[in-house]
Simulated assay, not measured.
Amino acid sequence: MPTYEALPRFTTDLHHLTPEQRRRFHQAVTRVFIPDLRSGTGFRTALRIKRVRSAPGGVYELTWAGNGRATWQYGLEIVPGVPHIVWRRIGTHDIFAEP
């Protein structure tokens, strides 16, 4: 199981989502993102994971709904050989004003 942390801004953003948005994000992460991360063979195209070019340091975008986005990056491994994810922002396209 990958380890993760959430930046304070992510936590604030998460509290502003509707219950349905939180449910959809949770489903995308638990049913697709984590299994794909574990497999080590790449992410399914349905997640539309891509690098955020305007953000330094290898920040990625995860699409979890039509207008649902989350930004994340790989952090330093806490458990050797297990990916560590740092969640940065979550919401609509508006999060890209400050990824």
Rank of each mutant, 00 (worst) to 15 (best):
P35M: 02
H26A: 14
Q27C: 07
T30G: 07
R24Y: 03
S39T: 08
R23D: 12
R44S: 15
T18K: 15
T18V: 11
A46G: 05
H26V: 11
G40L: 11
Q21K: 09
L17D: 06
L37W: 04
T41A: 13
A46N: 10
G40I: 08
F33L: 11
Q21S: 05
G40M: 10
V32W: 10
R31N: 13
V29H: 03
D36P: 01
T41C: 10
V32M: 06
H26F: 12
V32S: 08
G42C: 06
T45N: 12
I34G: 00
R24D: 09
R23I: 07
A46W: 06
L37K: 07
T41Y: 13
R23P: 02
F43D: 00
R22M: 03
A28F: 02
T45C: 05
Q21F: 00
S39F: 00
F43L: 00
L17E: 05
R22D: 00
L37H: 09
R22E: 05
F43C: 00
R23Y: 10
Q21C: 01
R22F: 00
E20T: 12
E20P: 00
R38H: 05
L17G: 04
E20I: 08
G42S: 07
Q21N: 10
Q27T: 13
R22T: 00
P19W: 02
T41R: 15
E20N: 09
Q27G: 05
H26Y: 14
T45P: 06
R23L: 12
T45R: 14
I34R: 07
T45G: 09
G40E: 14
R24F: 04
T41I: 10
S39H: 06
P19G: 02
I34H: 06
R23S: 14
E20D: 14
T30M: 13
F33M: 07
T30K: 12
L17C: 09
E20R: 11
V29F: 08
T41H: 13
R38A: 08
L17Q: 11
R24A: 04
L37P: 05
A28Q: 10
Q27H: 13
H26G: 12
F43Q: 01
R31Q: 15
R38N: 13
F33Y: 14
P19D: 10
V32D: 08
D36M: 02
Q27F: 08
E20W: 05
F33N: 03
T41W: 08
P35T: 04
Q27K: 15
R31K: 15
F43V: 00
T30H: 12
R22W: 00
T18H: 12
L37A: 05
R23V: 08
L17P: 04
A46F: 04
